[in-house]
Simulated scan of single mutants.
Amino acid sequence: MMWPSIALLAFVTLQRLGELVLARRNTAALLASGAKEVAPEHYPVMVALHAGWIIGLWLLASGRPIALFWFLVFMGLQVLRLWVLATLKGRWTTRIIILPGAPLVRSGPYRFLRHPNYTIVVGEIAALPLAFGLPLYAIVFSLLNALVLYVRVKAENAALKSAMILK
């Protein structure tokens, strides 16, 4: 049966496309209210990584059985993703956007982690390929994601610190 894997891949693809629309809208609103983008040079690499991850899954995972445990882990991460989106509301974006004078969000999952969205993405990049029985794929993309996140988190923390938001 191919339809479960196709349905899961379609869900993830549509979710990511919807998030890009939301991010673009939020970014435009933030910039219009005086926010500044920081360290945009890594953004195309991050987009390429995520696009490659999804495209590769379509090529390799379509029609494969889905391991229930890893599927449930992945779906649990989706609940946490919604929590992040609900907490940040209009401040959620895929870019590093600093709004001068805005306090750092410390509610929701941000009470527990400085970067919960990145933690969720780390889990997703590994869990979804593992749900399709693709451990090497999970390892390769997890390592690539770690490189991108190293650059991104470093840039984001520096931007927050320079904006006097992060102490």
Results as ranks from 00 to 15, higher is better:
Val38Trp: 05
Val38Leu: 00
Val38Gln: 07
Ala39Thr: 00
Pro40Met: 06
Glu41Leu: 10
Glu41Ile: 11
His42Ser: 08
His42Ile: 10
His42Tyr: 14
His42Pro: 01
Val45Glu: 11
Val45Ser: 10
Met46Pro: 00
Val47Phe: 06
Val47Ile: 15
Ala48Val: 15
Ala48Phe: 11
Leu49Trp: 02
Leu49Met: 08
His50Ala: 07
Ala51Tyr: 10
Ile54Lys: 00
Ile55Gly: 04
Ile55Glu: 03
Gly56Val: 06
Leu57Phe: 02
Trp58Asp: 02
Trp58Ile: 12
Trp58Leu: 02
Leu59Gln: 04
Leu59Lys: 04
Leu60Lys: 14
Ser62Met: 12
Ser62Gln: 05
Gly63Phe: 07
Gly63Pro: 08
Gly63His: 11
Arg64Ile: 04
Arg64Lys: 15
Arg64Asn: 11
Ile66Cys: 08
Ala67Ile: 12
Ala67Tyr: 14
Phe69Gln: 11
Phe71Ile: 01
Phe71Trp: 13
Leu72Lys: 07
Leu72Trp: 14
Val73Leu: 10
Phe74Met: 07
Phe74Tyr: 15
Phe74Arg: 00
Met75Pro: 05
Gly76Phe: 02
Gly76Leu: 03
Gly76Ala: 06
Leu77Gln: 12
Leu77Met: 10
Leu77Lys: 12
Gln78Gly: 08
Gln78Phe: 11
Gln78Leu: 14
Gln78Thr: 02
Gln78Ser: 04
Val79Asn: 00
Val79Pro: 01
Val79Tyr: 06
Arg81Glu: 03
Arg81Ser: 10
Arg81Gly: 11
Arg81Thr: 12
Leu82Asn: 13
Leu82Met: 13
Trp83Asp: 15
Val84Phe: 01
Val84Lys: 00
Val84Leu: 06
Val84Arg: 00
Val84Tyr: 03
Leu85Phe: 13
Ala86Glu: 12
Thr87Ser: 15
Leu88Asn: 11
Lys89Leu: 01
Gly90Phe: 02
Arg91Gln: 12
Trp92Gln: 08
Thr93Phe: 01
Thr94Pro: 02
Ile96Arg: 14
